[in-house]
Design a protein around this nucleic acid. Structure first.
Length: 441
RNA sequence: UCCUCAGUAGCUCAACGGCAGAGCAUUCGGCUGUUAACCGAAGGGUUGUAGGUUCGAAUCCUACCUGAGGAGCCA
């Protein structure tokens, strides 16, 4: 039996294989909290009802010892667990291994200690809940896209040049040539888009930025859809459907996990289309208005803004707090964005780009745009920013052979998990976080 | 890279210029309904590293190391 299905086994004799999560020693009565990966169940051993050698094992079990338990499931309101309300009256208990003294206790620990013990920390209840939700989010991303006519077309991780010129890359040695870990699959996506219409890539992405915040990882997962004949408006329509489906699926499948995380789910129920849409111009105006209401000089300096500045995270948080669901901000200044973004008609200083800001201070979870499809203009932009056109020859080629208007975006999986789970830090949203100065274990 | 804060028992913390302490974990004893159980006992320390001030430093000063929070950059 799997503990997750315990309610369907009331009154039956079952066998559970797993690990001891915690034990309460009441002398002739032992409460064993056992986890098997699908849930946690209380197993009860009475001295009177068991052979002495079996009870003795129950009495001596250490935290995280591996065991096999046979017993009868019974409903009992007092029984803790996930799901709770049922417990197993032990009739037989077999020890697989008596675990050494386990470092992580069911109590508060510091971040450094927990990260050093991440290989064990993933067994803990909160981490179990988070990573199960992550699994569902990833699964939903793929299902939704597959069901809506998108084809998964993988893009390379080892690449010969920068995807964009703006961020730092991890360089590696490729048989004597420099190569870089991919920071986006987007340029390849554009080639694939012309072959399959609607495509997406989904994989790890690497950024060697020296970022040290609750929102950054050096290695993170990103899904990047790219669609032929899509306008910026089409893109926003699609994104709000897509994001809403992810949130609603988690709500449907993971009430128990959200409960473990003490997530306020009323904030998530709101996440349905349509999402508010404001232009960058309007966003700047709203921030300026907001600034007039603020007296604290430090806060004022943080939120100061003039047209042309990219938003920092204080700006994003402030904007997002004005709405009860994610908000699209579109038409950013061209100078603040990547070279391949389509200019706004008659207004070259702004481009057809759109970021989606999550509520509750979680910041940018998607970033996308219409791409330049005119070959001359794209060539101009490549020359302008001074990157070597030779590295981009194949990319420029795409505009010579049947170029079409198209658009796409990238969604950061970990930021999405952090937002949906209501976590203060992104490091718990990925099994093994790679951060500045930390890549063990 | 910049700013701020913190490193004391396996873990979480106290002691803030005068004997190095508690809870949890571990070991031993007690308890038939615990929810991070409880009660009693025991073991456990080069106070991050190096230097300095002082009769005396975990405590004050300097440098370094490690970590955390924030900024920038971004998903």
């Amino acid at each position: 039996m799997q503990i997750g299905d315990i309610a369907q086994h009331d009154g039956q004799e079952v066998t559970v294989r797993g690990w001891l999560y915690n034990r309460t020693d009441k002398g002739r009565l032992q409460f064993l909290l056992v986890r098997d990966g699908t849930g946690i169940a209380q197993c009860v051993a009475f001295k009177k009802e068991l052979p002495p050698e079996v009870f003795e094992i129950a009495q001596e079990l250490t935290q995280e010892s591996s065991i096999m338990i046979t017993g009868t499931v019974r409903a009992d309101d007092r029984a803790p667990g996930h799901p709770g309300g049922f417990e197993i009256g032990i009739t037989h208990l077999e020890l697989i291994q008596m675990a050494d003294e386990y470092p992580i206790q069911p109590k508060e620990h510091g971040v450094e200690f927990l990260m050093d013990n991440r290989h064990l920390w993933v067994r803990s209840l909160r981490q179990w809940a988070i990573l199960r939700i992550r699994g569902t989010i990833i699964n939903t991303i793929r299902n939704w896209l597959d069901e809506h006519g998108y084809l998964l077309v993988d893009t390379p991780i080892l690449t010969p040049a920068a995807g964009e010129n703006t961020t730092t890359l991890f360089e590696i040695d490729y048989y004597g040539e420099p190569a870089y870990l991919a920071q986006t699959g987007q340029l390849y996506n554009e080639a694939n888009m012309a072959a399959f219409g609607k495509v997406y890539c989904f994989g790890p992405t690497f950024r060697a930025e020296k970022s040290k915040t609750r929102r950054h990882l050096m290695e993170f997962w990103m899904v990047e859809p790219e669609m032929a004949f899509f306008s910026l408006e089409d893109l926003m329509d699609m994104e709000e459907q897509f994001i809403s489906a992810i949130v609603q699926t988690v709500l449907e499948k993971h009430r128990m996990e959200l409960d473990i995380l003490e997530r306020d789910t009323s904030r998530l129920e709101n996440i349905v289309p349509p999402f508010p849409r404001i232009s960058y111009d309007e966003a700047v105006e709203r921030l300026k208005q907001r600034l007039e209401e603020i007296d604290d000089p430090e806060r004022k300096a943080e939120l100061a803004i003039t047209w042309g500045d990219d938003f920092g995270s204080p700006h994003e948080t402030e904007l997002a707090e004005m709405f009860d669901r994610p908000v699209f901000v579109y038409n950013y200044p061209t100078a603040a964005k990547a070279f391949y973004m389509q200019p706004v008609e008659g207004r070259p200083e702004a481009c057809r780009s759109v970021d989606l800001l999550a509520p509750e201070g979680y910041g940018e979870i998607t970033g996308g745009s219409e791409r330049i499809y005119d070959p001359e203009l794209l060539k101009e932009r490549v020359d302008e920013i001074g990157i070597d056109p030779e590295n981009y020859a194949w990319y420029l080629d795409l505009r010579r052979f049947g170029t079409v208007p198209h658009a796409g975006f990238g969604l950061g999986v970990e930021r999405t998990v952090a937002w949906i789970c209501g976590l203060p830090h992104i490091r718990e949203t990925i099994p093994y976080a790679r951060m500045l100065n930390r890549f063990y274990p």
